[in-house]
Design a protein around this nucleic acid. Structure first.
Lengths: 343, 343
DNA sequence: CATGATGAATGAAGCGGTTCAGTTCCGTGC
DNA sequence: GCACGGAACTGAACCGCTTCATTCATCATG
């Protein structure tokens, strides 16, 4: 027997070099600086590569180059179209710069956020885009201090040192609140949570401001997540409230909640918008398609993704002066009024 | 000046070792086999790690270990809730096995698929889950031959050597077609494309079978993508057709198309289901929430993701006997009848 | 008390690339 | 004829970690 115990991995760069009769450095050049190689050599080497089925090892390359050529993107909820659009923006921008995007979802959980931030840092991503759950500012600061540029997404960076791309959520909340007030609501319920999410706090605060200015009653119904299951629960809760005590306007902190609330209300026989007006936030594509087209507050999700990636790229390029470069981009939200608040 | 030119990367494992007064191997053990280290040593080393802010380099680890501890997941469309659910299933299952999931989207484009498959192979993923665009079977075969186990998703593996998890799309198409026939439709339009997607071909074929068996007219309206923009286009096209020539039943090959068609029809003043009945495929959460709740064909997306990851794990574990292990899991679709076809 | 066994720690040899200071070889210019 | 510059290629020295054969103590056993 020829007895080889090794796992028989594929051919290595050095095997290609040997077979092609050149040095390893030349193969590397063929792969990354073809202009530095004589045409015939190039052809021959490429032929050998194809013939042997050589596949470069990314880990080895990254180790010797010292950079990974990738950025990490950590979002709150992979099943929320808002984040899908945002991610699409990031990926398009990153692709144009030859950067790979590593995508992860914290599911709004601090422990998952911590874990993915760790993973990303261990992978030596060249930069990080994060929608923070809240409470991990310390870790973010540490990562940033160790030299990885970070851009905060969908959240205004209050602490200096971070760039951020966000929408003015207080204004967005005000827009929604004012819209309900204008629709004649006298008792508004704002739905959302957990309040550790800054987005939630700001949207609620904005709505509150509008309601109070108009002398309209406003209350908060807390949710554990910003997802449909919680919306359904709250929706039925509202429906079960005696008509006298029931709010006549609902502002949900995102469309997933709003759509689920809408569905629950209608199933329970409550008329929207006649009995209860409903408005959401994000203006995801499905909002306009809902049984009663859902009013919402629009965020330029895709654009936010693109812009964030651009900020990050700038920070990555500027190296050490990072700290001073930090800048905040704030987009303005827009009201998208539809049937669910028209009365 | 103290003059250090190096980029001042963070501390290395060897720095930690030196500072803690132990050998590098011991640090490695602290990190991965804490049980093999004496309690006091463990404490001290962990303290030093925390103090120095040491972050292991994943590339180096992967290089020396020879395995990446991650799997690649390549889906057709990151903005389609069906794939989000599927991905969630994969991630949950992978997480339980301590595997990281690398997610990428081909956007139904063969070139992007090729590129991501390359990336994944270079990253030496331990396994691959792929929803193929079609046409890259050769590349998949090559990757598989080089030793990376592959599970095909949402597509029955016809070629041997691949495991697969899929729904019986022909049956699903038949279900949808039969349902339209039962609803009294005499002229059905099936919408979807490109036909390079096997899912599309099968769903259409199933519907065709049902229609022909019932002697009902059936035609195909092709789309370039399985996304909302194309649905809108086709929807308006249908609406613009003179009533006499207009189909009275529409089967869209996924819910994104169906919802957009629904919206376009209603905007154009066509009544659903009275004038045109509409049914989709996937039964995404938003289907039930639509203006006219959308009938659909349900696939157990999350379960499919889980199951696929389990198959992959099995293939990864069995090493060389891979080829013989290949198995096909086929889920059965279910009809979800709602208002959009009730007449 | 010699003999293993067991537990803890060591440190050098990889893992598979990239880089870059050198070496060769040629064509130019004077 | 000779010095010089550049193009093409070479190959050893890393990159930062894991592994594992060894060494060193310690301790129970007959």
């Amino acid at each position: 027997m020829t007895g080889e115990a090794r796992p028989t991995r594929g051919p290595l760069l050095r095997d290609v070099a040997e077979r092609a009769g050149v040095a390893t450095g030349t193969i590397s050049n063929v792969l990354h600086h073809p202009d530095k190689v004589a045409p015939e050599t190039l052809d021959k080497v490429q032929a050998v590569i194809a013939e042997m089925g050589y596949v470069p090892n990314a880990a080895a390359r990254q180790l010797s180059r010292g950079r990974s050529g990738s950025v990490g993107l950590l979002v709150l909820d992979a099943r929320n179209p808002f984040f899908n659009d945002l991610a699409a923006g990031v990926e398009d921008a990153a692709g144009a710069m030859d950067l790979a995007v590593l995508l992860a979802t914290s599911s709004e959980r601090a422990d998952r956020e911590r874990m993915y931030l760790d993973r990303f840092e261990q992978s030596r991503v060249d930069g990080l885009l994060v929608t923070p759950v809240g409470g991990s500012i310390k870790q973010l600061r540490a990562i940033s201090d160790r030299g990885t540029p970070i851009v905060l997404l969908d959240r205004l960076a209050t602490t200096p040192g971070f760039s951020s791309v966000a929408v003015d959520d207080i204004e967005g909340g005000r827009l929604a609140g004012q819209h309900l007030v204008d629709a004649g609501c006298r008792d508004i319920a704002v739905v959302g949570g957990p309040v550790t999410l800054e987005q939630v706090r700001n949207r609620l605060a904005g709505a509150q401001r509008a309601a109070e200015a108009a002398g309209v009653r406003i209350s908060h119904l807390a949710t554990a997540r910003m997802a449909a299951d919680e919306g359904r629960r709250v929706g039925f809760e509202i429906a079960a409230t005696p008509p006298a005590a029931r709010p006549d306007g609902v502002f949900a902190a995102n469309d997933l909640l709003a759509l689920a609330i809408l569905q629950a209300l209608i199933l329970a026989g409550i008329r929207v918008p006649e009995d209860v007006a409903v408005i959401g936030y994000d203006d995801i594509a499905f909002a306009a398609l809902a049984s009663v087209p859902l009013s919402s507050v629009r965020q330029p999700s895709y654009q936010m993704g693109r812009r964030a990636m651009e900020l990050l790229a700038a920070a990555m390029a500027s190296g050490d002066e990072r700290r001073s470069t930090s800048q905040q981009v704030v987009f303005m939200p827009e009201l998208a009024a539809r049937a669910s608040t028209m009365r």
